[in-house]
Amino acid sequence: MISLRNVDKSFSKQPVIQSVTLSIEQGEIHGIIGASGAGKSTLLRLMNLLERPDAGIVEFDGTDLTILPKQKLRQIRQEMGMIFQDFNLVGNKTVEQNVAVSLELAGVKKHERTDRIQECLRFVGLESFARKYPTELSGGQKQRVAIARAIANRPRVLLCDEPTSSLDPSTTSEILRVLQDINQTLGVTIVLVSHEMQVIQSICNRVTIMADGRIEATVATEPAGITEITSDAGWFLTQLVERRDSHA
């Protein structure tokens, strides 16, 4: 579905991605893991051409994106949703306006927009938050809005750049569950960048390991499942007490 061939990318003569070849298959949840600075974000941003490669080819469904005219590239980007570590919501727009703008950009008619916004917010469990502003939401809720916005145009791929890295463990599992749901019920292919092994292991079918701008390996894995992590007081207590007792 997405295919990078011999892609290079440098920032001010500093090579950041070096002859990377990688293909993302239809329907998979593809993890990309590596140390901070390994080039994961850059690699992800190359997939929707937020970064232009210095050399090599980036294909989406067999179309070389690097030679597309701007207008066509923008249409393709609407088939690829993207979410970020810092959510990147528009603070002066309400939840529904944040989702609406994505539909406006794709030229969805106004009467249809209302239904689609409802549908997307229901999917991420935020239908009652439509009129709230991002600042009134928790981190996990903001990321859900970002997800609703990213899937509003029914993309075929969802690019996720450290989507859980600023969230606490229980919110992390919530978001991972939403992503898995998007993959399983909507059939959206997911590329998940993270530096956290637990996150990658929980839902990915295939994982690419990156180091210093290169791909070390790509391996098939069995998703380990999303660990039940709660943040309620009782759970904290049992954990602490069990630990103490097992050491005693």
Binding site: L50, R74, R77, N88, V90, V101, R149, N153, L159
Partner: peptide, 14 residues
Amino acid sequence: PKGVIEAAVSMGAS
């Protein structure tokens, strides 16, 4: 924030 612009571009905004 630059991220907001990035999100806009990723949504296909001109």
